[in-house]
Simulated scan of single mutants.
Amino acid sequence: MNVLSKSELVIAKILERLIENGLRESELNFKDLGLPEEFGNFFFQCVDWLRAEGFIRYTNLQRFVDSTASGYVLNPVLTSLGMHMLGNTVEIGQKSVSVAKAVSKVISGKVDYNRVGNAIGGILGGFTKSIGS
C-alpha cells in the first residue's frame, strides 16, 4: 500500500467515525480508528486536511509531543459540506454508490481497496475543485 492509499484509508476511517457519532460531543484519537501503528503518522495530517477542505470542524486539537499519533480531536463533526460530499455518488465497477457506502465497504474489506480508494480520492479531489471554482 503506497502513502496516498494509506492517507485515503485513514480519511475513510475518520469519516466512518464521524458518521457514527453524528452531531454530538465526542473525542477522536488515532486508536479509535483501529488501524496498525504504521498509519499513525497520517492521523493529524488527515484531520487537518479534512478541516482545511471544509469537510469537518472541531472544537480543539491536542497533539502531544511524545508520539506522532498521540493526542485527540475534541468534538469533531461533519460540516454541511462534508455531509453533502458523503451523499455524492461514485462509480465502482459498474455500480453507482454513495461515498458514505463506499467508505463503509472499504473499511469492512468487502471491496478491493485500490479501486474504491481511487474513487474516494477522486470524489474528494473533484468535489473540492468544483467547490473552489
Results as ranks from 00 to 15, higher is better:
90 V>W: 00
39 F>K: 03
87 G>I: 10
19 I>W: 09
118 N>V: 09
64 F>C: 05
15 L>C: 05
88 N>G: 07
96 S>I: 07
99 V>R: 05
87 G>C: 10
95 K>R: 12
94 Q>F: 12
108 S>V: 10
39 F>A: 06
130 S>L: 07
42 F>C: 02
115 R>G: 13
112 D>Y: 10
131 I>M: 09
104 S>K: 15
72 Y>K: 13
118 N>A: 12
79 T>G: 03
14 I>L: 03
130 S>F: 03
58 Y>G: 01
72 Y>E: 09
6 K>Y: 05
69 A>G: 06
15 L>W: 03
129 K>Q: 07
65 V>P: 11
62 Q>I: 11
73 V>G: 04
116 V>A: 15
16 E>S: 12
23 L>Q: 14
48 D>Y: 11
124 L>A: 02
16 E>V: 03
88 N>Y: 12
109 G>W: 05
85 M>Q: 07
110 K>V: 09
132 G>H: 01
67 S>T: 06
111 V>I: 14
85 M>R: 06
61 L>V: 09
84 H>M: 11
50 L>V: 06
68 T>P: 12
88 N>E: 13
124 L>M: 12
68 T>S: 14
50 L>A: 00
103 V>A: 08
78 L>H: 02
54 G>N: 01
25 E>V: 12
46 C>F: 00
38 E>M: 09
61 L>F: 03
63 R>I: 04
114 N>L: 12
94 Q>T: 12
101 K>A: 11
84 H>G: 14
84 H>Y: 14
10 V>W: 04
120 I>G: 04
5 S>H: 10
33 L>H: 00
105 K>W: 11
27 E>I: 11
80 S>T: 09
101 K>L: 14
46 C>I: 03
54 G>R: 02
93 G>H: 05
109 G>H: 08
29 N>T: 06
101 K>N: 13
71 G>D: 00
104 S>W: 06
8 E>H: 10
21 N>F: 12
38 E>I: 11
119 A>Y: 02
132 G>N: 07
126 G>Q: 06
7 S>K: 15
107 I>P: 08
80 S>E: 12
68 T>Y: 10
8 E>Q: 14
8 E>F: 13
101 K>R: 13
101 K>W: 12
83 M>Q: 15
69 A>I: 01
40 G>W: 01
105 K>C: 11
76 P>E: 08
36 P>D: 09
94 Q>Y: 10
121 G>W: 08
109 G>I: 09
51 R>W: 05
120 I>Y: 03
45 Q>Y: 13
65 V>R: 15
64 F>I: 07
10 V>Y: 02
26 S>W: 04
23 L>R: 14
47 V>H: 01
33 L>C: 04
11 I>V: 09
130 S>T: 06
30 F>Y: 02
105 K>I: 10
79 T>V: 07
127 F>R: 00
32 D>C: 08
63 R>F: 01
24 R>D: 13
6 K>W: 05
78 L>Y: 04
119 A>T: 00
97 V>S: 09
91 E>D: 11
